[in-house]
């Protein structure tokens, strides 16, 4: 069986690892450190860990001040609160002054599961992506999360890292190289391209396997950086495969699907189908049941791929 690790777990470990080599790393949390896994850093570096209590707006504002004084703050809470509750602080205290704050938000998307719609962020990518100067990264697995955390720390400026609650299969090997703004080609193909991020990358690979069984060669791109998006890889995929499917655990409005459609509408129009949450809130349920009910499975990607190819 494939090894599985939640991206939030990989985040906690990566953060502690980073803390050992970089004394400027400081971490803030809003009373969810055991869930976001920042507690791992907190246990090792109590002097550089600030629990801000259940006050997300103040956490982001404080992170901005720490960054203004030269620190590299990572601020964590659930995605729905980091981007919704504290949106104005992210906008005005972090992005507008381009301060070096990393917002690492966990429990994104439907796979929060049983907590239900109040805790399931379906709009966070859209919110963060619309902010000038914000970099948006959605790692697909534990390996990529670790590298993305390191890249975010090395990059100067605001970064939004979107992480998940459930354990997900490890996709990348130790030789994987992550670069902000670069898509990773996971599988070559000429008939259709599946562009996926986060949890949906695993489903995209499964879909490609199913399609291969039917004689369809699907290209699979892991678009972990949603902003700045890899325009070159998208245009190449559009030219060479002529049809695309996007797959994300997010509203089909404003997220990965929106970003891909925007780029290709201008640069190389081809049929695109978006697999994602269809402009609705979620509900309580197991992650597996939710993904099935809301159309976020490999089978949904296969169906969308066929529709896109038919429109060529």
């Amino acid at each position: 069986m494939t090894e599985k690790i939640a991206t939030r777990d990989a985040y906690g470990k990566a953060l502690a690892e980073l803390g050992r080599t970089n004394p400027d790393i400081v971490v803030l949390d809003a009373d969810l450190s055991k869930s976001t896994k920042t507690a791992v850093f907190g246990a090792e570096f109590p002097g550089r860990f600030f629990n801000m209590g259940i006050a997300e707006a103040n956490m982001i504002g404080t992170a901005a001040g720490l960054a203004a004084a030269g620190k590299i703050p990572f601020a964590s809470t659930f995605a729905v609160f980091a981007t919704g509750r504290a949106f104005d602080q992210v906008r005005n205290s972090v992005c507008y002054p381009q301060l070096n704050v990393k917002i690492a938000a966990t429990h994104a998307g439907l796979t929060v599961g049983e907590d239900g719609a109040s805790h399931q962020s379906v709009e966070d990518i859209a919110l963060m992506r619309a902010l000038p100067g914000m970099t948006v990264i959605v790692p697909a697995d534990g390996v990529e999360t670790r590298l993305a955390v390191q890249a975010a720390a090395a990059y100067k400026g605001p970064v939004y890292l979107r992480l998940g609650r459930p354990k997900v299969p490890v996709i990348f090997g130790d030789d994987y190289r992550f670069e902000i703004g670069k898509a990773a080609l996971l599988q070559e193909g000429k008939d259709v391209t599946i562009v996926a991020c986060g949890y949906m990358v695993g489903e995209a690979l499964a879909a490609a396997e199913t399609l291969a069984g039917e004689g369809v060669e699907a290209r699979v791109l892991n678009m972990s950086t949603i902003k700045p998006i890899d325009t070159e890889a998208l245009v190449k995929a559009a030219r060479e495969t002529g049809a695309l499917v996007t797959a994300e655990e997010h509203n089909i409005i404003g997220g990965l699907g929106g970003a891909v459609a925007e780029v290709l509408a201008e640069e190389c129009p081809v049929p695109i189908y978006r697999v994602g949450i269809r402009d609705t809130f979620g509900e309580s349920g197991s992650p597996g049941d939710l993904l099935k009910k809301y159309g976020l499975t490999a089978a949904d990607i296969v169906e969308a791929a066929k529709k896109a190819m038919a429109k060529k």
Binding site: V26, A57, G61, A64, G65, A68, K71, N92, S93
Partner: peptide, 24 residues
């Protein structure tokens, strides 16, 4: 020292600067 204008945010930023001063 800090971009402000959306009211209520400057005290948190000042807190962050003060925390950094103590750390350093």
């Amino acid at each position: 020292e800090m971009s402000t204008g959306s009211l209520g945010q400057g005290l948190a930023a000042a807190n962050g600067m003060a925390l950094a001063g103590k750390l350093d």
